Amino acid sequence: MLTILDKYILKRYLITFLGMLLLFVPIGIMANLAEKIGKIIDNEAPLAEVIAYYGNFTLVIGNLLLPIFLFLSIIFFTSKLASNTEIVAILSSGVSYNRFLRPYFIGAGLVAIFIFVMGMFIVPNASIGFNKFEYTYFKKGRDLQQTSNIFNQLNDTDFIYVKNFDPNRQIGYDFTYERFTENDQLDFKISAQNIRWIEKDSTYRLTSYTKRYIREGNEYIQRKRNLDTLFTFQIDDLTPVSYIADTKNLFELDAFIADQKKKGAANINTYVLVKYKRWALPIAAFVLTIIAVAVSSVKRRGGMGVNLAFGIGVAFIYIFFDKVFGTLAEQSGFSPLLAVLLPNLIFGVVGIFLLQKAKR
């Protein structure tokens, strides 16, 4: 049951957090609009799409920064409690420091649940419109799809490979299609200089087509300059957009990752990293709460300004670590799980150290 102390601190916790959101989210929207207004006008983006984009922008960017907003809001209101000697009065009344932390962890739990629901079910839907607008009007398809060394396993027997892919022209170069028998013997192999999707005919056009197949121990080779044919796959299925994992909810993402692993997708770490980051954000709420309370619960010379400056510095370092480990996971084969755990583990240890120091 919540006591008067719990309700007092928890109320300040949540009100300051909501105030921080209401203060910084509009600032973020205005800063983004000031940066992108030229491209919006030049590309003649419809007003309705612009409004929808900034609605989605609020959800996508806001969700990523929720732990940071939480961190700064705790430093702000706890520093105020310390400067008013309220914390000294609370501890002098016989309340232990651990008991003093209880409402902070309750608040962190509520925010963590909010972050979890947002990240797993609400933000993925917003990411569809957000990324579509970004790549349509700001990035013009740049880095929209994987464009080199594309390998996919279509099913248990069929495999395809494309060395390079041009998403704008819907054409792949150095195309290979292999089918194996149940005994893992090559049934046939198709290769072509390029493969192009012909939308008006709903067919694929292969240039410098070669088919090699084996029947009854004999090898046969077919060659044609051009061949229009059908396949069971779509070009977009082979090269999913780079943000595809961001648009899937908790259950869809698990199924998508399992499917991509079966196909042997080269960029599987990117998808797994997205999954783990969604689980890590709620944990970050607790880690940053510990650090914020430890830093701001002690009255110090310079007051709230010093604590806020320290908090902003810690926030930037946390984001830097998160970005560095995330890039390692995407580009160098570093474990996505470690990439997500290490920043929280490092800052968790720092938080416990600062907390023990604050208790003394």
Rank of each mutant, 00 (worst) to 15 (best):
D166R: 10
N98A: 08
I171K: 10
L230S: 14
Y318A: 00
A31Q: 08
V272N: 13
L341A: 11
Q170W: 13
L2F: 07
L22N: 00
K275F: 08
L5Q: 12
E252F: 08
L354W: 02
E330R: 14
A280Q: 10
A265H: 07
D174R: 13
L81R: 04
M1Y: 08
V25Y: 01
P46S: 03
D237K: 03
Y204W: 10
V162Q: 14
F233A: 00
I195W: 10
I68V: 08
G141P: 05
V117T: 15
A265G: 02
Y243V: 02
S93W: 05
L253D: 05
L33K: 07
L288Q: 00
L337E: 09
T270G: 12
E219I: 11
V117K: 09
N149F: 10
N269C: 05
L14T: 05
F133T: 06
I115C: 15
N307R: 14
E216T: 13
G264H: 02
L18D: 12
R300W: 01
K262Y: 11
A329Y: 14
L59A: 10
V306N: 03
Y104L: 04
D174W: 14
I113K: 09
L91F: 00
K200V: 12
R142M: 15
N43I: 11
N249K: 08
E44K: 15
L230P: 03
G305C: 03
K224R: 14
L273I: 05
R196T: 11
K140N: 12
F105C: 05
F77E: 03
G109R: 13
F334T: 07
N125D: 14
L342G: 01
G141M: 06
D143L: 04
F69K: 04
F321T: 02
L5D: 14
L341V: 07
P46H: 02
F69E: 04
W197A: 09
A285T: 12
Y137T: 05
E178W: 12
